[in-house]
Design a protein around this nucleic acid. Structure first.
Length: 311
DNA sequence: GTAATGTGTCATAGC
DNA sequence: GTGCTATGACACATT
């Protein structure tokens, strides 16, 4: 019995393994396409014109998700230095009216753009020219990377001459935000960029909170699992103790029974046969000597009652 | 070279 | 209808 209990306890050591679905890498079908194959960067298309052309002609229709707001013409940006994939994401498709794709018919099938990746040298014109820097530690590089990430919209805002800070764009309440917008004469492109910056900024914070919450939830659940495992172990130990104690009590009763039965004598002074008689405990505490068949019958009845009660 | 991890972004649902 | 938040999924960089 104890071994069975211990086996049961050992079953609690359940390894919680998270399933992992590896992200399938997209196939690169064209030499300069992004990994997702969804790049909208027209400069990479054989039938395209440059992004600056696209932006310069966008006064009457956007080519990207955020129209010309992010396709700023950065002719002052000089040749790219090295591979800057993070700077390539400036032309998205989401929310876009398909009719706006008339200049890029070969991209009409694209529904979701993750244009993070560009060919070497095809730096996002939105982004500033970043000269090569001295070797940095991985932490510094990570920090640099994050700085670039965080300032990307700021570069865009500066390039589009947005007259207030991104911090305001992102954090002002709607009313104040709209009030701020109304104070300036802003072009459609500027308004579009501002809305994008606000949306991205808010979503960025939301994602950070979401991830924190997710981690907290996981930690709490892990703690709960540990607590429950401790409780279960404790209950199982108690169960083992109770069963042991019950077995001892039953043994004592059995010994007592045999002692009492062995001392009983009939009117002729002979002992009763345990095959023909048995002792039975009455509800009032008395002990009766009754013939075996009757005792067996009562025992069966009692058993049935208990079964019914369990149901 | 690869798996794991962290981050920003997009799409979408729900409020 | 609009704006916001939450979250899954994706792409990418880094470790």
């Amino acid at each position: 019995l104890d071994e069975a209990m211990l086996d049961e306890i050992s079953l609690m050591d359940l390894a919680i393994e998270e399933g992992f679905n590896p992200v399938q890498a997209s196939q690169l079908e064209e030499e300069f396409d992004s990994d997702s194959g969804l790049s909208l960067d027209s400069s990479h298309s054989p039938a395209s014109f440059s992004s600056s052309e696209a932006s310069s002609s966008s006064s009457e229709g956007a080519v990207g998700y955020s129209s010309d707001s992010e396709n700023v013409d950065f002719e002052e940006t000089e040749g790219a230095v090295g591979y800057q994939p993070e700077y390539s994401k400036f032309c998205r498709m989401s929310y876009q009216d398909p009719s706006e794709l008339r200049y890029l018919p070969y991209l009409e099938h694209v529904g979701h753009n993750h244009t993070y990746n560009m060919a070497p040298g095809a730096q996002d014109p939105d982004e500033p020219h970043l000269p090569a820097v001295a070797k940095k530690s991985s932490k510094e590089k990570q920090s640099d990377f994050l700085d670039k990430q965080m300032s990307r919209d700021e570069h865009r805002a500066r390039a589009m001459k947005i007259p207030f800070t991104n911090e305001k764009i992102i954090n002002l309440p709607v009313e104040e935000f709209n009030e701020l917008l109304s104070k300036y004469q802003l072009s459609e492109a500027q308004l579009s960029l501002i809305r994008d910056i606000r949306r991205r900024g808010k979503n960025k914070m939301a994602a950070q909170n979401c991830r924190k919450r997710k981690l907290d939830t996981i930690l709490n659940l892990e703690r709960d699992v540990e607590d429950l495992q401790r409780d279960k172990s404790k209950l199982l130990r108690e169960k083992v103790e109770f069963l042991k104690s019950l077995r001892q009590m039953k043994q004592k009763v059995q010994n007592l029974y045999q002692e009492v039965f062995g001392r009983l004598r009939d009117e002729n002074g002979r002992p009763y046969s345990p095959n023909q008689y048995s002792l039975q405990y009455a509800n009032d505490g008395s002990v009766l000597l009754i013939p075996r068949p009757l005792a067996d019958q009562q025992a069966r009845r009692q058993e049935r009652k208990q079964k019914d009660r369990r149901k």
